[in-house]
Write a protein that binds this DNA or RNA. Structure first.
Length: 539
RNA sequence: GGGCCGCUAGCUCAGUAGGUAGAGCAACGCCCUUUUAAGGCGUGGGUCAUUGGUUCGAAUCCAAUGCGGCUCACCA
């Protein structure tokens, strides 16, 4: 007996030491502990697609994805559901939508009945959904989608609505615990879209104790009685809808933003209400919001200072997008950077990768942690790369692209030591570097070779120095290293009586039309003799 | 009013299963005559917000306090 107990404790201790460094693993263990050993674990997430689903909303999705992975790696059978609350009401027209005047005429109707003014989908809600559903597989996330408008309108939740009506008083009592204004005695836990106007300016006035409710349309001042099983009008309000679905789907885990996971927030009331539906509350965790940094006020594809997953995927490769979230505690706010920080993020990721492949020595504890972060950052968790990526610094890729007229394929083929296994990843990274240069890089960072430009005005001695440099390049560049060749740059300057500083400046102006540039000798070496001489021969 | 988060180097932040304080940028120095760095190497820099407690040992755990922020008490 005592020995057993000791054994258990030892087990727990080793469990704590092994493979529990990451919060997703800790959460998976907690779910198993609190929910018991189950045939199937259901993990859920969801949102109202009432506007652009931005990168902050994505945090919830990837939080669930990581926990799902951790559970599956423990041999568990897991269902990952994502609920689109597209039967929610259209409250206001977001700034970034087309044809706002037309959209405004649909206010107070369910978003699934609002037209998509961008013309890409069958309705407003669907347009927002499609964008996310197309983007998630890119980062290796594959939930099962649930469309609430469809379910409510088909009567799928009719029993849930009836149950809520039966438990009306209990629900009201629970909600009133935190309300400043108590709900009225004649309040019903149902909202109705008028069958005359589709708008929700209605008041439920009665229930027959079974399937029929009566509501009053406040716009038209008339009443109607509907059967909730076959009339697509009724819906539960959020604080009742959420727990009803927990019970219906048997949700074991669902995270929430801090608006839900605060005292008196919807998680608190829902965990009580769910019992009225015969269920129990899922394990939850709070995630904080995402800030954006360095978008420079540029209009993103979705308009305004909003970034969605596609905007982030433009400048970060899929595994690095995951890495941003995997490596950060969900509990705290962090910023996604579009400015020079991008360079560091890529370096951090490469460093993590080097630790994973044992290329640098770090303490054991750090190593375990970084390895887990690397694994969870991969798009396909079952296919971790067998070799590190090419690991070219982002800055170097930016220079390569600018040498090769921003052509990704040319830049790629200029590197002759890339393995087959590295090619796709490097190409993806080059594409991100190009996007970043075009949209977010500071001006000092950008340049292009003056291949087809007219020569700049120079003095006779400067002309002579550039010519000398050109012939040195033709003659010596290919056989020397960067350091060795740099002496010829100084020679060209000295032989023509020019100050080094002035000559560097002239050379940069001739080559890239700027006063400064990348360290010259290395730059000339990277660009190659052919291109350099073709520019300098004009002098 | 309730709840939560944060306070670590000049700046931005890692580090929170207790065990000698870390990175990047900035600063400073050096880099075979010889850059103005977007390159390399190196150096300096922190009473870990404050106070108290637990401990052999606390940035880390506990309790208070201060400052900053978010959020709920409408709707979702």
């Amino acid at each position: 007996m005592q020995e057993n107990c000791l054994f258990e404790i030892m087990n727990l201790m080793s469990e704590n030491k092994n493979n529990l460094s990451h919060w997703a693993d800790q959460m998976a263990e907690r779910i198993i502990r609190e929910k018991g050993d189950k045939e199937l674990y259901t993990c859920a997430s969801g949102i109202t697609p009432s506007g652009t689903v931005h990168i902050g909303n994505f945090r919830e999705i990837i939080t669930v994805d990581l926990v799902v992975r951790a559970l599956r790696e423990r041999g568990k059978n897991v269902r990952f559901i994502y609920s689109w609350d597209d039967y929610d009401v259209f409250r206001k027209v977001p700034k970034n939508m087309k044809d706002p005047e037309r959209l405004a005429t649909y206010l107070r109707k369910p978003i699934t009945l609002v037209p998509d003014t961008s013309g890409t989908a069958e309705n407003y809600a669907r347009a927002n959904e499609v964008r996310v559903e197309n983007a998630l597989p890119i980062v290796g996330i594959h939930p099962e989608y649930i469309y609430q408008a469809d379910r409510y309108r088909r009567g799928y939740y009719a029993e849930g609505i009836r149950r809520a009506l039966e438990k009306r008083d209990e629900i009201r009592t629970i909600l009133n615990e935190w309300r400043t204004e108590p709900l009225a005695e004649d309040w019903y836990p149902v909202s109705v879209f008028s069958s005359f106007t589709d708008k929700d300016n209605t008041t439920v006035t009665g229930w027959d104790g079974e399937w029929c409710i009566t509501y009053h349309d406040n716009d038209l001042d008339k009443s109607e009685t509907i059967d909730i099983r076959n009339t697509p009008n009724s819906k539960l309000p959020w604080r009742v809808d959420w727990p009803m679905r927990w019970a219906k789907e048997g949700v074991d885990f669902e995270p929430g933003g801090k608006d839900h996971l605060t005292e008196g927030g919807s998680y608190d009331t829902s965990k009580k209400v769910v019992e009225l539906f015969g269920g129990t509350a899922p394990v939850s965790m709070r995630y904080d919001f995402i800030k954006l940094k360095g978008m420079g006020g540029k209009i993103s594809s979705s308009g305004g200072e909003v970034a969605d997953l596609y905007d982030v995927l433009e400048i970060y490769t899929p595994e690095i997008v995951r890495y941003l979230f995997v490596g950060t505690r969900p509990n705290s706010e962090f910023a996604i950077s579009f400015d020079l920080d991008v360079l560091k993020i890529y370096e951090d990721y490469d460093n993590c990768e080097r630790i994973y492949f044992g290329l640098i020595d770090v303490k054991e504890q750090r190593k375990e942690k970084e390895k887990r972060i690397y694994e969870l950052s991969q798009v396909d968790g079952s296919r971790i790369p067998s070799e590190p990526g090419y690991q070219a610094p982002f800055r170097h890729l930016c220079n390569l692209l600018q040498i090769h007229e921003m052509d990704v394929d040319k830049a790629l083929s200029s590197l002759d030591d890339v393995t087959e296994g590295q090619k796709d990843r490097l190409k993806a990274r080059l594409t991100c570097a190009r996007n970043w240069l075009e949209k977010y890089a500071p001006e000092e960072f950008k340049w292009s070779l003056s291949m087809d430009k007219e020569p700049i005005d120079v003095s006779d001695s400067e002309r002579k120095a550039l010519r000398d440099l050109s012939s040195y390049v033709a003659e010596y560049l290919d056989q020397m290293d960067e350091k060795g060749f740099s002496t010829y740059i100084y020679k060209a300057a000295a032989d023509n009586g020019l100050e080094n500083a002035d000559f560097f400046s002239i050379t940069y102006r001739a080559l890239i039309g700027k006063e400064k540039g990348p360290k010259l000798a290395g730059f000339i070496k990277t660009v190659g003799a052919e291109k350099i001489t073709s520019i300098l021969s004009k002098y």
